[in-house]
């Protein structure tokens, strides 16, 4: 909102103001602003220091919950980044990890790979739907799906996140997924019943998963092979 539209009862140049204050030299102006900036910087840094651990911890917790939920089992996971068309856990120095695409590899109690959690996103009915899904490279089936963010119609489109009958279908389904109207499916593997009245939103989820898998499956397979080869060696 604009600084120029101050309320009518607030004359910006009240006469007493102008008369009360003599002309101020510009270095004083700059100095005052610099001082104010420094002060505010100081305040912000301290608050930042104080809040940052909690914020980071929460973000990590959210991610952990989501990954573990869609993988349905493993105790831990490791983050893999897509760098030069391959997955790697280590990042070269100086790279900002936030700019990299990531997938999360579930690690079982014995240290063996236990599925991948892959994030995906796609424009839905209103805005971008972002989600994460678990994928088992060994069997080529899904392990689960969780919508992380959506602005779909409340009570209708947002059932892709809240309706367990819909989300439960993704556990153990073969890919690629096919969306069908409830009760009209042929019973084939990979069929997902869409939500009546929210066909677009449900299909967004299905297409987002198919697209993401098309993209990362070769990488995942390569990673699994490399890891197996390493283990064999």
């Amino acid at each position: 909102m604009s600084a120029a539209t101050s309320p009518p009862n607030a004359p910006t140049n009240a006469p007493e103001n102008v008369q009360a204050r003599p002309e101020v030299s510009s270095w004083r102006l700059v100095a005052t602003l610099a001082l104010a900036g420094a002060l505010s910087g100081l305040m912000l840094v301290s608050v930042h220091q104080w809040t940052q651990p909690a914020i980071q911890a929460h973000k990590a917790e959210v991610l952990r919950t989501a990954v573990l939920e869609v993988l349905g089992g493993p105790e831990t996971y490791e983050t893999l980044y897509v760098i030069d068309g391959a997955l790697t856990a280590t990042v070269p120095d100086g790279t900002d990890v936030r700019t990299l695409e990531a997938v999360y590899a579930g690690v079982g109690p014995d240290g063996a790979l236990d599925g991948f959690a892959v994030p995906a996103a796609r424009p839905g009915f209103q805005d971008v739907v972002s989600l994460i899904f678990g994928y088992d490279a060994a069997t080529g089936t899904l392990r689960g799906m969780k919508v992380l963010g959506n602005k779909e119609t409340p009570g209708l489109g947002d059932r892709i996140e809240k309706d367990t009958a819909f989300t439960a279908q993704f556990d153990g389904t073969a890919v690629p997924l096919i969306g069908v109207k409830p009760g009209r499916g042929s019973g084939a593997d990979g069929e997902i019943d869409t939500i009546t009245g929210a066909t677009i939103s449900s299909r967004t989820v299905i297409v987002a998963i198919n697209e993401a898998l098309d993209r990362v499956r070769p990488l995942l397979d390569a990673y699994v092979n490399a890891r197996e080869a390493e283990a064999a060696r």
């Binding site: 796609r122 424009p123 209103q126 299909r203 967004t204 297409v207």
Partner: peptide, 8 residues
């Protein structure tokens, strides 16, 4: 305009 150019 909802859903314009979206999935499906």
């Amino acid at each position: 305009f909802a859903g314009l150019l979206s999935a499906a």
